[in-house]
């Protein structure tokens, strides 16, 4: 009995010593974790004339006050649209686009058109332009970093670029997963 007791006490003391809390050293890091993406850059290249480019940036270097360029495109024209994401707080700027390429089977970019700002996804318009993805992930599903945009008639509204994060359940549609990036650009097609 006595031996058992000593053993119990010893075990208990050992447990107390070994199971000490995982406390962090109170050394404060001296830099802030960046939100990592500051800039979305859309580059439209006229498929018929490679010299004709339209570049639009969505840029937020301060947090909360983005500077957003307006996109002006020609009607009834096919553009090659390339989407890039950067962290411009780093020097040189960090290209986040690579991370999407690497995890292509978990991400899907959508380019959607709306007549109103911050509208519901269900209200996106199919009549503005036809978007055809050009890139494929390991499962042969589109990623959307490189697409063709074939504009139709004149239009004034918004182009929304959404990066959906769809681990395990990417199936080509918008529904699964959740949103990593959502930016909206004023758009005019004339």
């Amino acid at each position: 009995m006595k031996k058992n007791l000593r053993l119990t006490l010893f075990a208990a003391a050992a447990a107390l010593v070994l199971a000490a809390c995982k406390k962090e050293k109170n050394e404060k890091p001296n830099e802030n974790a960046n939100e990592e993406i500051t800039t979305v850059k859309l580059t439209f290249t006229n498929a018929a004339n490679a010299a004709e480019k339209v570049v639009a940036n969505w840029k937020d270097l301060t947090g909360g006050n983005p500077v957003i360029d307006k996109i002006v495109l020609k009607a009834n024209t096919t553009y090659h649209l390339s989407t890039e994401l950067f962290d411009e707080r780093k020097n040189p700027a960090d290209t986040i686009t690579h991370e999407i390429e690497e995890e292509g089977d978990e991400h899907r970019l959508f380019h959607l058109f709306f007549s109103q700002a911050n509208a519901n996804v269900a209200d996106s318009l199919g009549t503005v332009a036809t978007v055809t993805p050009l890139d494929k992930d390991a499962n042969n599903l589109p990623i959307g970093l490189e697409v063709n945009v074939a504009t139709k008639g004149a239009f004034t509204g918004f182009l929304r670029m959404v990066v959906r994060h769809q681990p395990d359940n990417k199936n080509g549609s918008y529904g699964p997963g959740s949103t990593d990036v959502q930016t909206e650009f004023p758009l005019e097609i004339k």
Partner: peptide, 22 residues
């Protein structure tokens, strides 16, 4: 008292996906 809290969000390469408070 020590209070340690880790909040780990979904895996994402694109955003800061955790918060740690001490």
């Amino acid at each position: 008292q020590f209070n340690y809290r880790d909040e780990l969000d979904r895996n994402s390469a694109l955003s800061v996906n955790q918060m740690n408070l001490n």
